[in-house]
Design a protein around this nucleic acid. Structure first.
Lengths: 322, 322
DNA sequence: ATGAAAGCGCTAACAG
DNA sequence: CTGTTAGCGCTTTCAT
């Protein structure tokens, strides 16, 4: 059995409560503290975090729920969270829900109960389901907003506008938008920003490489000279299909993605895309939970944090063909 | 306060121990069990893992340590682990060490202390460091082997041979091998298999997209007509550079990757590569820990599990130019 | 400043 | 098959 407070107490000739106080910074005489510390050190004492958690009510652990770890977008967020967690020495449970709402809600319930807070990335659940399943004080939404809930989101509308302004500045007048899933929060944000522009809207394609491949033919059958894809994965599928159809990018068709996942720079040609802070959002979300641990709610203004987005111009966009 | 066993016991009209038994599979009458289950369900009861862990001595949690979550290879493994964990209802702490040995060892110590076991993926630490920092009974190495330690690894040598045989069957006689880091276990395994073939070995390039880009020029300056890359990321960088240099793949140069990460199918042209079970390895590793929980050590033969690899032929490899 | 004692939520004896 | 009784290791009143 591992050494416990009792062993240390015996070794130091004091009571367990004194040991506890000495180790957690309670009021103890300097001499006693030194004795206790020495005994603990000598015995190689390691506090049992489980036992401590039981009484303090805090575990020092947090939960992160993502729809799909294989999606580079979420991998980036997870990495940001993990890095921050490592710095502050807290644990992070990660659950991949495989895009399943039921699994998401289940994870929310389980993690909510066993951690000090949970970060929920781009949940597939509805606002109502979220409101019911999540504790608004210890849950923060990442890249999603819902009434009354803490959130860290990117300024999607601004990024969308930047992309559109970029394409229009290059002379494009027939710009296609490949919409993602209808029920996606991010999708609605994009659409809201697009209301100010004239676009050729293409019905929802799956937000995947395959979705982009499929969209390629649709776009080619339209008068579009440029495409704003729902995300980088779609853009890459599109690029793939355009290459297969012998269409030169950006000479005959400009393509702009969204998210700036690491693959974007590796595509052929390198993808012009809207950079979204991912790792930073993850770190900020954890920070939010850490800061408000124990304290009262932040003001409403602080509850919805918006991070900036910015267009990264690479080689997949160019002047409109004449 | 959240609902506890007491609440459920009151609601079901039984004692807390009966509730406990009903929920953990003890001997309870079917009728009672049904009543308890119903009450638990109705109250939205979630067992507190902390409290349970305190008494059972087990936390029901496991740790997963990866060098880089953004690397699709590790994201795949993590997803496999998470999926299995979800099925058996246990928690998984994931730590991204950012390729840093010190962070890896630190995570190993921390996680080792408050979990039932840890999965260590492709550790960057030496055998000696591993042996010292890890508990051989509760740590399993994934895609790495070390004397005396539990491990799940792919049959790298077999995959390497398949790739070489494929290229030779296509008529290639000048085959370049882009070696990865010298100190990598996987790298040494590849090299061992390559001992039976004549190859043009290129010094270690970084196992990244950039490494592949760099290697492109080296390969073109050699008589090679085919390249076996250290991994898919390198292969994709190579493809990128070859395209930029106007070299047609596979007409003028064949390229074979390793790992079969999801990007491999999206590259241009789609990459021929050695498929390595990733999610499956992760799930199997967790399974290993789960099975031996509490029990005695498995036999030595069971301690080193090897999973099969297999070549996936796509479009980046073709007959040698004449 | 220190010790005794009371639990945190749960499971595992031990009776019945 | 079920309820009662102890704790698991730790922190935290409450006395002293």
């Amino acid at each position: 059995m591992r050494t416990t407070v009792h062993d240390v107490a015996d070794a130091a000739g004091v009571s367990v409560s004194t040991v506890s106080r000495a180790l957690t910074g309670g009021s103890v005489s300097p001499a006693t503290r030194a004795t206790v510390m020495a005994a603990a050190e000598r015995l190689g004492y390691r506090p049992n975090r489980t036992a401590r958690g039981l009484i303090t009510g805090r575990t020092g652990n947090y939960g992160l729920i993502v729809p799909d770890l294989r999606n580079p977008f979420f991998a980036d967020i997870a990495k940001g969270v993990s890095a921050r967690a490592r710095a502050v020495d807290c644990g992070v449970f990660i659950t991949d829900t495989d895009e399943d709402v039921a699994a998401e809600l289940e994870a929310l319930a389980t993690l909510g109960r066993n951690t000090d807070g949970v970060l929920l990335c781009s949940p597939r659940a509805t606002d109502a389901e979220l409101l019911e399943a999540a504790d608004p004080d210890t849950t923060v939404l990442v890249h999603r907003q819902a009434p009354g809930m803490l959130s860290i989101a990117a300024d999607i509308a601004a990024g969308t506008r930047q992309a559109m302004d970029h394409l229009r500045a290059l002379g494009h007048r027939q710009i296609a938008f490949l919409a993602g899933p209808d029920d996606s929060w991010a999708g609605r944000e994009r659409l809201a920003a697009l209301a100010d522009y004239e676009i050729l809207r293409f019905g929802s394609v799956a937000p995947t490489f395959e979705g982009g491949v499929l969209a390629g033919d649709l776009v080619l059958a339209s008068p579009a000279t440029a495409v704003l894809a729902y995300n980088d994965l779609v853009a890459m599928g599109l690029l793939h299909r355009l290459a297969a159809r012998g269409v030169s990018v950006p000479d005959q068709m400009s393509v702009v993605g969204y998210d700036d996942i690491s693959l974007a720079a590796m595509s052929h040609p390198p993808l012009t895309t809207v950079a979204v802070p991912k790792g930073r959002a993850g770190a900020a979300a954890l920070e939010l939970l850490l800061r408000r641990a124990g304290k009262t709610l932040a003001t409403v203004r602080d509850r919805e944090v918006t991070l900036p987005t910015g267009l990264v111009v690479r080689s997949s966009s160019g002047v409109a063909p004449t």
